[in-house]
């Protein structure tokens, strides 16, 4: 355990170092843009991984929550002149409440049925956004004003980069704390054996609901900020395809691994950008890369690579092993 705890700090330090050093290679606006996008996706994926990877409950409607957060910010700041921070918090609270109300009946379902129900929820949200065009601008989307914190406006990519980088570190830290707490153990327990968890006095339904709400709130917060950052939001961000993208990032990066969510978000945000050089074959290659990953690293990038390191650690110099472990944060087993 102490091992895990110390490596937890190592992981956080490693991530902070990466965020701090990355601007050295980010030579233009476009690179910053991609990095910021990775940050948004990583925050949503960490929240989603708490739900899917740790608590074992699937959600195919998370883009709906992301979209609701984005539209809440757009409408509350644009139409009602709310300060962006207040609007974002209100959006998170609103989405949290919605997740609470919808989650109560939905989370009684298991497996495929839960997937279907959350899928339905996401689709309903995106339909409402498309059809309430007087408020949301319909399929054309809506413009969103700039973001400012306490009168300090985030004007350029650089400012956004540091802001999102800090927020990502905060999200990782909060999530790690949660996982290594009584509540986190309860979540992991009910994932592994619900009946065993109940025998330990854990109210499984209440905990599933709690993590569902928390996870939805993370998504809403990221959605609010992403809307301000891009200055424009369309219903596609709340759509089914985006939900699937998010789940794919979690699975590819590694279930029940916080750094897995970050790596998954990074890889699946970067890859399409890189593969654009292949033009028509972009999607084919992307699909092939994903399939290969899941076949050869079935537990996802981070946990599978961590297991490989474990196997190879005897062959490598111990100091290097320690450094590598620190880097990947010793992803927990799914």
């Amino acid at each position: 355990m102490s091992h895990y705890r110390s490596s937890r700090h190592h992981g956080l330090i490693a991530l902070a170092a990466i965020i701090a050093l990355l601007p050295l290679v980010l030579s233009n606006k476009y690179f910053y843009d991609v990095a910021i996008l990775i940050g948004f996706n990583a925050i949503v994926c960490i929240g989603l991984n708490l739900l899917i990877g740790y608590a074992g409950q699937i959600s195919l409607g998370h883009a709906g929550f992301f979209g609701l957060g984005a539209y809440a910010s757009a409408i509350l700041t644009g139409n009602y002149g709310w300060p962006p921070v207040i609007a974002a918090l209100a959006g998170m609270a609103g989405v949290g409440s919605l997740a609470f109300l919808a989650g109560r009946p939905i989370l009684k379902l298991k497996g495929h049925y839960l997937a279907m129900a959350t899928l339905g929820l996401g689709i309903i949200i995106s339909l409402v956004i498309v059809n309430q065009d007087r408020l949301t601008g319909g399929p054309d989307g809506i413009t969103v004003g700039p973001f400012s914190v306490l009168g300090f406006a985030l004007e350029n990519e650089r400012a956004w980069y540091w802001f999102i980088g800090g927020l990502l570190l905060l999200t990782v830290w909060l999530s790690q704390n949660l996982i290594d707490s009584p509540m986190g153990r309860a979540l992991r327990a009910l994932h592994s054996s619900e009946v065993g968890a109940q025998a330990a006095g854990i109210n499984a339904a209440a905990h599933k609901l709690q993590i569902f709400v928390l996870s939805a709130t993370f998504a809403a917060g990221a959605g609010s900020l992403a809307a301000h950052y891009s200055g424009f939001i369309t219903p596609a961000k709340a759509g089914f395809i985006h939900s699937v993208e998010l789940v794919t990032m979690v699975v590819l990066g590694g279930m029940a691994s916080i750094y897995g969510a970050v790596v998954g978000a990074a890889v699946l945000t970067l890859l399409p950008q890189i593969l654009t050089v292949l033009k028509d074959y972009e999607m084919v290659v992307l699909g092939a890369v994903m399939m290969a990953t899941m076949i050869f690293l079935p537990r996802g990038l981070v946990p599978s690579l961590a297991a490989l390191c474990e196997r190879w650690r005897d062959l490598l110099p111990p100091s290097l092993v320690l450094r590598l472990e620190a880097l990947i944060g010793r992803g927990r087993k799914p």
């Binding site: 355990m1 009584p182 992991r188 054996s193 025998a199 330990a200 854990i202 799914p334």
Partner: peptide, 26 residues
């Protein structure tokens, strides 16, 4: 009321010690 199961319902995704800590949950 504490109970054990015929087929142990162990939480395989954590350490042995954490399994016992889950029992302290309440």
């Amino acid at each position: 009321l504490g109970r054990t199961f015929q087929t142990p319902q162990i939480f395989n995704n954590m350490s042995a010690l954490e399994n016992v800590m889950v029992g302290r949950y309440m």
